[in-house]
Amino acid sequence: MLRLKPGFQVLASHAGFRARGLTTVNASRSLRRAAAALLLGGTSTALAAYFLLPDISRGAPTCDNIPLSPSHFTPAKLVSSTITSSGTKILTLAIPPELLPEEGDLFAPIWSVFIKDDDIQVERPYTPLDGVDENGNMKFWIKRYQHGEVSRWLHSKQVGDTIEIRGPLKTWSWKDDAWDEIILISGGTGITPFYQLLRTVSSGNSSFQGRITLLHSSKTLSELPPHDILDPLLNFARHNPEKFRLKFFVDSFGETKGQSSMDLEVHKGSIGKESIRSALHSVSWFPWWRGLFSQDSDVSDRKILFLVCGPEKMVEAIAGPYGRNYSQGPVGGVLQSLGYKSRQVWKL
C-alpha cells in the first residue's frame, strides 16, 4: 500500500446462421452440388445483411430544433478539451439549453448518451460525469483505445467542432431504499457511471441511507482518474466516512510526478476476494461479532448490491462474463465464490 502525500499529481449484431442440410445415403452428385450452391448463397446473404443493412445510428435522423431524445441525434458543440494523461481527455459538450428535455426519470442515475462518429457512422455510449447542467453542458472522461473507432475520433476533435449525441438512456435504475450497502467495483474509465451516481447521492438529491464503497483499479498511478473526478470523491469520503469510503488499486506504482492537494491511499495489486471481503467486513462499519460468522452466513439474504464496470477481463474475473449480446449472464468469478446471487450483482 502506498499513501500519496501532497507532492503527487494524479495525471490523470453479427448475423449468424446455421445451415442445415439433408443427408441421404444414395444422394446424387448433382444434389450435393445444389446444396453447396445454396449454402454459399446463404452465407453471402448473411454477410451482406451484417455489413450492409443500417443499424440504429445510421437510421436515426439528426434534429437541431427539437429536444434531446433517444430517437434522434442532436448537434452538440465541443467547448472544452483537456488532456488528463497520455491516453485520456476530459471533453465538455454543450447543447442549446432550449433543447434539454424535461428531467423526469430521463436523467435519473445512472444514464448515458450515444456519441456518433460522423466519419464511419458508428455510435458508442458514454456517461456524462456530472450529468447535464442548466446550460446544456456535459463533461466526459474518455480514454483513447487503439481499436476504438469512436474514442480515437473524439480525441481528434477540436474545440468548436460539432459532435452529434443521442439520448439520454438509462444505464441502470436506481432505487433509494432497495439496498443497505452498495459496493462499486470499477477499472479505468469504468468509474464514470459510479461518479455520476455518487454525485447524485452526495448532492442531497437522493434519500439513500445505506453505505457505499468504491473499489477502483488502474494500471499505473498516471492512469488514475483526474482531479475533476478524484477531488469531489475524496471530499465526500472525508466528510462522510460513515456513508462512503473508497480505495484505489494499481498494477504498478511507476514514477510519481507533480503535486497533489490531498492524501490518496493506493494499494498495489488487483481487486480480489480479500479486498472485497475487507470492504464488506470493515470493523468500523459492522459490529465486531458479524465478522466471526460471515464465512458461514448466507450472504444471498443480505441487502447488498455489487455494481461492476470496467474492461471485460476485469468484469469477468469479478462477476463472471457477460451473456449473449452483453446481457447480464450468470454470476461468476469472485462474487460467485463469495456466494452472491444474480439479484445482488449488476454488470454495467
Rank of each mutant, 00 (worst) to 15 (best):
L2M: 13
R3S: 12
P6S: 13
F8K: 03
V10M: 04
A12R: 06
S13F: 05
H14F: 05
G16Y: 12
F17E: 06
R20G: 03
R29K: 13
R29T: 13
S30Q: 10
L31F: 05
R32M: 09
R33S: 10
A37H: 11
L39P: 01
S44A: 15
L47S: 10
L53P: 00
D55F: 04
R58Q: 12
P61L: 01
P67G: 01
L68S: 00
S69I: 05
S71F: 09
K77D: 09
S81A: 08
T82L: 02
S86R: 08
S86F: 03
T88N: 11
T88Q: 09
T92P: 00
I95H: 00
P97T: 04
P101D: 01
E102I: 01
E103M: 01
F107Q: 01
F107D: 01
I110V: 11
I110R: 05
S112L: 07
V113S: 10
V113D: 05
F114R: 10
K116V: 09
D118N: 12
D119M: 06
E123S: 13
P125Y: 04
P125H: 08
G136I: 02
G136S: 04
W141G: 00
I142Q: 01
K143G: 03
R144F: 00
Y145S: 06
H147D: 15
G148W: 02
W153T: 03
S156K: 11
G160P: 02
G167W: 11
K170H: 09
T171K: 11
T171Y: 06
T171C: 09
W172Q: 09
S173I: 05
S173Q: 12
W174H: 04
D177H: 14
A178W: 09
D180K: 15
I182V: 15
L184T: 07
L184H: 11
G190N: 14
T192P: 00
P193F: 02
P193Q: 04
Y195T: 11
R199G: 03
T200K: 02
S203Q: 01
S207G: 10
Q209W: 02
G210S: 06
G210L: 03
I212L: 10
I212P: 00
T213H: 07
T213Y: 03
S218M: 05
T220P: 00
S222T: 08
S222W: 01
E223K: 11
L224K: 04
D228V: 14
D228Q: 13
L230W: 05
D231E: 15
P232M: 06
P232K: 10
L233G: 02
H239R: 14
K243I: 05
F244Y: 15
K247W: 13
F248V: 10
F253Y: 13
F253S: 15
G254P: 11
G254A: 14
G254L: 13
G258W: 08
Q259V: 13
S261G: 09
E265R: 12
V266Q: 07
G269A: 04
G269R: 05
E274T: 15
E274P: 08
I276L: 14
R277M: 14
A279C: 09
F286L: 14
G291T: 06
G291H: 07
F293N: 03
D301R: 12
D301I: 09
I304D: 00
F306N: 03
E312L: 10
G320W: 12
Y322T: 03
N325C: 13
N325I: 14
N325T: 13
Y326R: 12
V331P: 11
V331K: 08
G332P: 10
G333T: 13
L335K: 08
S337W: 07
L338C: 08
S342W: 03
V345K: 02
W346K: 13
